[in-house]
Nucleic acid binder design. Structure first.
Lengths: 332, 332
DNA sequence: AATCATTTTGGGAACGATCCCAAAATTGGA
DNA sequence: TCCAATTTTGGGATCGTTCCCAAAATGATT
């Protein structure tokens, strides 16, 4: 197709070895450098990356496999990954898991076929134990973001969901709340299990009360939170409610307000995520913010360590969310 | 590194040509097929895609360059692209424009260096005329989604923004409104110009009134819409307001309600986009829905036509939004 | 059994880079 | 000016595929 390194050599009146050296930043004599630059410009030469990758068996590229490329929670993580990748001189390419997993056994062919030097798997879906076990065997650099299935042997990074909920419970406890309701989320999501566990452990540690009928599920949408809260309002006795996502919390907030109760005077509520809308609803929602960028950076650092042959701790690395206190809770 | 086609040939007691043929779905004798399958399994052979691409000078992959990979409006478009790509047997890989444009002249190196067979450039940012002119010269398959700068010579696809606003104006006109305010958006976004043009053309065609002080800007956020509406409320005389995005409309809605006015009884309002929140605010927002998936499919079809060497109309292809009538407007 | 048509196979030349190693050119010092 | 040390260059092998083409094997027909 286009001109090759050989054409450049011919035009610049030198050899392909010299062209290759020049392209890779090695020193060449001043006047050959000028001739080469002229030749490259006039031919509009671009190096064939496939040939290069074949001989070097390296791509200088990492793949990020995402289950849903437009998930807003992933953008902070991706920013973190890209920051580290740029620093290391690597490129990032993204694969949408949905489209690829259709006909392929998995994303692993990207590694085996030499498309990328390593992969970050980014998904907050709950992960299959069997799939995780298979990933441990993969003889290529790999980093997981999300559910690690409490399994060792894989390098993985995640939000410390239990800690986030623990912070919320402790905060409410500090305000004097003792009886708290909880709106959980869809069972197929990774964080659900850990958030619920954080709730139960912290509440029992602080000797707080959470009756079974005070725990309901939702689908993490506004509408779902609205319906879940209406269900909760059938029951009595709790003074605060923890929603396992902000989206849900905002739906629940509306349900509480429509029931004629004042927030926070007659009911406190907190969320999880710190989405932008949370600072905009009235009252502003107290929630926890996830250190998404840190998670992305850690995953990338772990991946590059593997690529460069260093040793890496093949366990889960958790990052604690931080409490964002706003106006949706009151002292009791 | 891994086993090669030659290793497979040796184990299966045949030649690399036969292995290659088998891998590419050509017919081989029944017993050699079985031997090959066994050899591939036992060696855990995967073909080296870089070598393949070198000799074939084709990748069977298209690149999608996105300015912000987590933009929620892009997900529908991407779904459309992937649907067509899957049908054609192509893979999609995504490049985040932000990370790549840093040190590269542009995304064009992806084409020149042989990473992909064609590129879809997806961005709703306003495009530089100079950059567009340069793209016309690109000797590779290319499709644009978003602002085409009213320039011919490029295959591009976009929402028909003018038509969407025209529908909203006409709808309000039909309800009896004659004096309408408008909240525009950030100047760096592609759709802004076309939406404003659609407003002005339709309003003057229908002999409606829009005083200069009834047109304000916003940054397309809730907060921005809220502030813009408060500014508009300083003035008098209009009976309806068109917001150039739903996000903005929802902010404006709150400003109207906080000013003590009833929606829609005392003020009608419409948005643009049909985000999920629009059906959830109270009253539900009348807006226009963008045919995002159609846009993605058209772009992909145009790209594949170019890849397959067919002729393609190098102009802008526009898709009309559809009006979603809900409860935020009333007859006058 | 012999001939011919048709499958099926194997060898070797690309593809366009990198990189080793020896040859050529340059530099410096006496 | 000459020789040794150093820098710069060029040739050729290599990476792992595909694909052309001729050779070998198979099958059909008489």
């Amino acid at each position: 197709m286009g001109p090759t390194i050989h054409d450049v050599a011919r035009v610049a009146n030198t050899s392909k070895s010299t062209v290759s050296r020049y392209l890779n930043g090695q020193k060449v004599k001043k006047d050959t450098e000028e001739a080469l630059e002229r030749a490259i410009q006039s031919l509009n030469y671009h190096r064939n990356e496939n040939a290069r990758r074949l001989v070097m068996s390296r791509t200088n590229t990492i793949g990020i496999v995402v289950d849903n490329i437009s998930n807003i929670f992933y953008s902070g993580i991706i920013r973190g990954i890209e920051a580290v990748a740029n620093r290391k001189g690597y490129n990032c390419i993204f694969y949408s898991g949905t489209s690829n997993s259709k006909h392929e056994a998995s994303f692993l062919h990207l590694l085996y076929e030499g498309h990328v030097d390593g992969i970050i798997l980014l998904s907050f879906q709950k992960r299959d134990q069997q799939e995780l076990a298979r990933m441990i065997e993969v003889p290529y650099p790999l980093a997981l973001i999300g559910d690690h299935g409490e399994l060792d042997g894989l390098f993985s990074v995640d939000i410390d969901n239990a800690s986030g909920v623990a912070d919320l419970v402790t905060y409410l406890h500090g305000l004097g709340h003792r009886r708290v309701a909880y709106i959980s989320g869809p069972a197929h999501m990774g964080p659900i299990k850990y958030r619920l566990k954080g709730l139960q452990q912290t509440m029992s540690a602080l000797e707080m009360e959470c009756r079974p009928e005070w725990i309901v599920n939702s689908d993490w949408t506004n509408q779902g939170g609205y319906e879940a809260m209406n269900e909760l309002l059938q029951h009595e006795g709790f003074t605060a409610v923890i929603a396992s996502s902000d989206e849900t919390a905002i739906g629940a907030l509306r349900a509480i307000q429509e029931s004629g109760r004042q927030v926070p005077e007659q009911m406190s509520i907190v969320g999880f995520d710190d989405i932008t809308l949370s600072s905009w609803v009235s009252p502003k929602l107290t929630t926890v913010r996830q250190p998404l960028q840190d998670v992305g950076m850690k995953a990338a650092e772990g991946l590059f360590a593997q690529i460069e042959g260093e040793d890496v701790e093949r366990t889960a690395h958790l990052y604690k969310p931080t409490l964002m206190i706003r106006q949706s809770c009151t002292t009791l």
